[in-house]
Design a protein around this nucleic acid. Structure first.
Lengths: 254, 254
DNA sequence: CTCTTGCGGTCGACATTGTCGACCGTCTGT
DNA sequence: ACAGACGGTCGACAATGTCGACCGCAAGAG
């Protein structure tokens, strides 16, 4: 039976739809958006609601995502082997560099943040675990693009979105950059996604050298860069953290 | 068609099963655990995998939860109205009290943490958003039990699990405690779940007085209590935060 | 080295199951 | 009071998911 289960695919589409739109959606909105009969959409929504994946606002009757998703998302993190092994190294990296540390994995057309260590100062920061970053304009994304053919495949050949003046928007330019990244073994991104923010990334691989994720540090251009380039000492810290995590991951299997 | 969609319920059961067990599960394990034919279980797993809800370990063939769940869980938080409105108040409460602040909602048989503000000192703390706390032994849980009939229903009449010597295990005792909580308008829990930890909770309600969640502060017995009782000044802070959030929530609708 | 055992995965027949579109009651805004 | 749109229900139909036997493979036992 090598075909997806229809009702499940539809349910997933509904969940993604609800996740996409900021506001709650009504039954009819859902049905028309996905081109389903109202009855069908209702059946799926009712089941999802029973299971806790979707909640219905009591008075408006509109639907939104449910709490069970949060719980399952947390469970995902609990089981995640890469994350578990990287926790302590990420902490050390943040302390050594004085910058924010992100740990990400390839997911669909972006990088999903699975761990986030706050910059060790007292400024207010919001946790970004569970959010996505673009592939072509971040240190995490570019290092994955450079080493993971699947990531490169997701990118396509169309012109890419520009977030700042320095964003690479031509896939050919990105490929050239990736060649450089492979050559020197690390990636950087200076104001390619957010003005004033620079980051340095390195690849994490399992014991068979398959790319499984990436670490990066991210901070203000003023602290991460020097004379227009990222500081070599920070590069060294990131690469050594990535190596440590990779080693840890390889050892873990046996 | 007032019946749940079979394949969806089964998919949800599989996800919960994967979330429950710490380790990855094989196809046959899943099938036997849920009493499904292997082919059926495979079909569901294949679809879930395609949608990103489940991932398969390349070499062992075993299944675990997928990254899409983390993303959707995050989206749930983004849309969550209670959480959005409570963010700033929770921050204030943490600063004023010097203790950890939790924000929780009723979910199944427990309290799901939807927001967590770290104690404002520099000790290492792990984020508990997405995790669950028991109903009968925490400040968050007991205040929900006291005001939300649904929560009380979930509790049942069976003896409850004891986490410490001070845990209330007899539902009748819990009911008596709830009466007290309703009378004075706040809940506390001193070493009922974790040794050395005390917390104070208060109810959050929408504009029609429906209970929608709870806030609490939680900290070491030594700092939260005085002469064997929780400090009245902290109680006042928590209650005033809960009122503020409730008011905010009510005002938001129009 | 071969045989056995268990694994993940596939296949095709069957009938259960989800789907569809018309229909109902209600609420809202006109 | 009306019209429209909403969420939700119903029952007929057939498309759909389910089942259990089967396949190839890898690991472990003999």
């Amino acid at each position: 039976m090598p075909g997806p289960i229809q009702s499940l695919s539809r349910a997933a589409a509904i969940l993604r739809l609800l996740a996409g739109g900021e506001r709650r959606l009504g039954l009819s909105e859902v049905a028309t958006a996905l081109d389903l009969a109202k009855g069908t959409a209702h059946g799926i929504l009712r089941t999802l609601q029973q299971e806790g994946f979707v909640e219905q606002d009591a008075e408006s009757g509109k639907y939104q995502l449910g709490a069970e998703l949060l719980r399952l998302g947390q469970s995902y993190l609990d089981v995640h082997e890469l994350r578990a092994r990287a926790l302590v190294w990420a902490d050390d990296l943040a302390r050594a560099s004085g910058e924010t540390v992100y740990l990400g994995v390839l997911h669909q057309r972006g990088v999903l943040i699975v761990h986030h260590v706050f910059r060790p100062d007292d400024t207010r920061q919001v946790l970004e675990v569970g959010s996505m970053q673009p592939l072509h304009s971040t240190a995490l994304g570019k290092v994955l693009l450079a080493y993971d053919p699947v990531a490169r495949g997701e990118l396509g050949e169309e012109p890419l979105e520009a977030y700042t003046l320095r964003t690479l928007t031509d896939p050919a330019d990105v490929d050239a950059e990736c060649a450089l990244i492979r050559e020197r073994g690390w990636s950087d991104s200076v104001e390619e996604t957010w003005e004033g923010v620079a980051s340095i990334g390195a690849l994490i691989q399992d014991r068979r050298r398959n790319p499984v994720g990436a670490v990066c540090i991210s901070g203000a251009v003023e602290t991460v860069c020097e004379d227009g380039f990222v500081k070599p000492s920070l590069v060294a810290s990131v690469r050594s953290a990535a190596r440590a995590i990779s080693r840890d991951l390889g050892a873990g299997r046996f």
